[in-house]
Write a protein that binds this DNA or RNA. Structure first.
Lengths: 214, 214
DNA sequence: TTTTTACAGTAACATTTGTTACCTCTTAGG
DNA sequence: CCTAAGAGGTAACAAATGTTACTGTAAAAA
C-alpha cells in the first residue's frame, strides 16, 4: 500500500519528472522517516538503495582514523545522496557518514532501478548528473573553505549554513558541538565567537547563538 | 582520417568498452595533444566536449578569488574529467583549472554523444559512474588532507603523488613551485623539506628532491 | 533544597604556520 | 670573465591555532 508516497513525490519532484516515472517510483520506493540525530549511513556500510530527500535535512560528514570529524555539506528536499548512488552502482562501501540534522523524511529507491531509469527517462538522467554536479561543487566549496579561509571565516560560514538549514537565525548549539563539527577545540570556538560578538555579528547566550547580520 | 585513433582506444579502453562503442568513438573523437604546462581548461570556461585520457597526466587545480591556487588531484590514462562531463550536460562553466603535468594526449568526445552512449552502452554508463566515484573520492582525500593533516604530512603526500605521476622518485621541482601548488610560502616549504631531510625521508639538491622511503 | 553536570569565559602557554629580511651558491647570459 | 637571476638556507619575528587549567554560572538531577 504505497498510495501515500505518490502525492509526496508529486509535490517535491513533479516539476522535474514525468508522470510515468513518478508512478514507477511510487511503486518501488520505500518511505523512511528518521529522527534528528539518527545515523542514516555510516562509514564502510554497504548500501542497498538510494535516498531521495523529501523533507528535513541530512548532514554529510567525513571522519579520519582517529575519529575526528568534519561536516562537509547538507542535503535538503530535492537533493539526492550521490555518494550512495555510486555505492549502489559500484557495490562500494560508503566513504561518508550521513546524520539527520532535523527530523527527516526520504524515499529509498532500490538499486536496480537506477540503471533502468537512467536509460529510460531523460529527466532522471539529467537529475542524476545535475546532482553529481551539485555535490561536486559543494565539495569544492569545502575545499576552498579549508584551504583559503581562516578559522574565523570558516566559523562564520558554518553558522550561516546552520541558519539556512534550520531556517532560524537563533541557533541552539553549544561551542563544543561546533568544535566537533569543525574539527577544532571548544576553547578556540569560544574565543572566535567572542570576537564575532565584539564585532557585532552574533549575539551569544547559553546554548544560543543569534546571527545578526544575516 | 581517424584510423589512427582506434588503435589508441583499443589499447587503453579495449578491456572496458565493447567493440561497437570503440568504433563509434573512433568516428567522432578528436585527438588532442598538449605540451607540459599547457592550460587545458580554465575557470569559467565553457566546454564543448569531454576529455578522455590516453597518455600523460593532467593536474586539476582550484583557485580562490585572490589567485591563490591549490592542486586537487591528477588524471592519468584511463581517467576522464568528470567536472567537464557535467559541464557538457548541464551547460555549466568550469569550476576548476586543468593543466598538463606532462606532455599529454587525450580524446575529445563531442557533448551530444554523452547521453546517447549512456543509454546505449552499459559499459559506458558503468565507466561514467565509476569515474564520478573516483573523482569524488579524490576530492574527499583532499579534504581529509586539508582538515586532518599538518603541513608536514601534506607536503610528504604531495611529493608521493608527484612521484606516482612522474614515475620517478627523483623530482625536479623548486621549493617555490611546491609552495604555489600547496598554497603556502617558499620559506615554509624549505623549512619542512629540511626537516624531512633530517629525518632521512628525502634527499635535497638544487631543483631536485629525491624521495627515499618510497 | 542540594548536588552534579554541562556550558562558557579567560589566561597562560605551546606549536604551527606565515612573513620579512638577508645571506650564499649555482646557473645562465652577456 | 663578470653579472644578474633564480634557488635555497636561515634567523627573527608575527599571527593563527591548539592545549591546559581554572573560574563562575546555569540547568538538570537527586
Amino acid at each position: 500500500m504505497k498510495h501515500h508516497i505518490k502525492p509526496l513525490l508529486e509535490e517535491r519532484y513533479g516539476f522535474l519528472f514525468e508522470d510515468e516515472l513518478i508512478d514507477e517510483m511510487s511503486e518501488v520506493a520505500i518511505l523512511k522517516e528518521v529522527r534528528e540525530g539518527e545515523i542514516i549511513i555510516d562509514y564502510g556500510q554497504n548500501i542497498k538503495g538510494m535516498p531521495l530527500m523529501l523533507d528535513g535535512a541530512i548532514k554529510i560528514m567525513r571522519q579520519d582514523p582517529d575519529g575526528d570529524e568534519l561536516v562537509l555539506y547538507y542535503l535538503e528536499s530535492g537533493d539526492v545522496c550521490t555518494m550512495t548512488m555510486t555505492c549502489c552502482l559500484g557495490q562500494k562501501q560508503s566513504e561518508i557518514k550521513a546524520v539527520a540534522e532535523r527530523d527527516t523524511m526520504f524515499l529509498f529507491v532500490p538499486t536496480d532501478r537506477m540503471k533502468v531509469w537512467t536509460k529510460k527517462y531523460d529527466s532522471w538522467m539529467a537529475f542524476v548528473f545535475e546532482s553529481y554536479n551539485n555535490r561536486f561543487n559543494e565539495l569544492l566549496e569545502s575545499i576552498d573553505n579549508l584551504a583559503f579561509n581562516d578559522l574565523n571565516e570558516r566559523l562564520y560560514k558554518y553558522l550561516k549554513d546552520k541558519v539556512m538549514i534550520t531556517k532560524s537565525t537563533k541557533l541552539e548549539l553549544s561551542h563544543q558541538e561546533i568544535a566537533y563539527e569543525m574539527n577544532t577545540s571548544r576553547v578556540v570556538i569560544s574565543r572566535l565567537l567572542k570576537k564575532l560578538e565584539k564585532e557585532g555579528r552574533v549575539q551569544l547566550g547559553r546554548n544560543k547563538i543569534d546571527l545578526l547580520d544575516f
